[in-house]
């Protein structure tokens, strides 16, 4: 009797907690202010501790990383030797190609960040959980950083700011799939919407008019169309595959991001806000 009463009470407690979780999810999906404020407050409190701990445990972390990469090191070493030889030969060709790329970007009007001011930041930590790609940077609202500002490296767009405290900000990576970005294919009139697939630096571009030719290898950049949270012409990546659905008059593309998201050390926050 007592056991069944206890089981009944447990069911009610679990149901109430589940309902509370659903309520919190609903509030968060509607952009509830208290949730954002609470996360920013926690970020402010924990960030200095995280930086200090990162410094203290770095020797152990390096040893850990070496231990778990040991199996791959020999193979990686051989591969790197071969690659090194090949790259020596490619250096000359690449320097010419780089010059050509710079000229091409200028010709098609991609000034990258241009005159827009940026804040140079250092990456202080990566993700806390196992889901959702994020980075923590060592500058915050004191440096003029606000939510939704784009974040770039020297290679291109990597994400946008989603949390800000006085001296820290959190960046959601474009590859995480948590937000979408409007893009244009350089040299064509094609535009579309790109979203990460939750893995490495690969994106899926959709909503492209199939009547417009998009070639593999084409460069993509932010479109900056009205209402876009990103300024125009921030390089995103190159098209690696194109699929066309003639019936739907729509093409989808795979995009490989220019920016290497592994082991990021520095990133720039572009102090840009959409007009209006």
């Amino acid at each position: 009797m007592a056991s069944s009463r206890r089981r009944g009470r447990a069911r009610i407690t679990i149901s109430l907690l589940l309902l509370s979780a659903v309520l919190l999810l609903t509030l968060d999906s509607r952009g509830s202010g208290p949730v954002q404020s609470a996360r920013s407050a926690v970020l402010s409190v924990l960030s200095p501790l995280g930086s200090a701990a990162s410094t203290v445990v770095s020797p152990f972390r390096n040893a850990w990383n070496s231990a778990f990469d040991q199996g791959n090191l020999k193979q990686e070493n051989e591969t790197l030797r071969e690659e090194n030889d090949r790259l020596k030969g490619d250096i000359t060709a690449n320097s010419i190609a780089k010059q050509q790329l710079q000229q091409l970007l200028q010709l098609v009007g991609i000034p990258f960040v241009g005159d827009t001011p940026v804040v140079h930041t250092r990456v202080v930590s990566g993700a806390v959980g196992n889901f959702g790609d994020r980075l923590e940077l060592d500058k915050g609202s004191n440096a003029g950083i606000e939510r939704n500002m784009p974040v770039v490296t020297g290679e291109g767009l990597i994400g946008k700011v989603i949390e800000v405290s006085e001296n820290r900000c959190v960046v959601s990576l474009l590859s995480s799939g948590t937000f979408r970005v409007g893009f244009s294919v350089v040299g064509t009139a094609a535009i579309g919407i790109a979203q990460g697939s939750g893995g490495d630096g690969s994106l899926r571009g959709t909503n492209i008019d199939s009547r417009l030719a998009v070639a593999v290898g084409a460069i993509t950049a932010t479109s900056g169309l009205a209402g876009s949270p990103f300024p125009p012409n921030l390089p995103i990546g190159t098209v690696t595959a194109v699929r066309t659905n003639e019936a739907a008059l729509e093409s989808t593309v795979d995009i490989s991001m220019f920016a290497n998201l592994n082991n990021l050390v520095y990133a720039d926050v572009v102090l840009w806000k959409p007009a209006g």
Binding site: A10, T13, I14, L17, L18, S20, A21, V22, L23, L24, L25, L27, D28, S29, V35, A38, R39, V42, L46, A127, V128, G129, F131, G132, R134, I162, E163, V170, S172, T178
Partner: peptide, 25 residues
Amino acid sequence: GAIVGFASGLCLDLMVTTPFGLCAI
């Protein structure tokens, strides 16, 4: 387990960027 799991999940929810409440579930 449900009560402690909910509380510890909320704590983790404050430190990540996934929808608030998912870690609690």
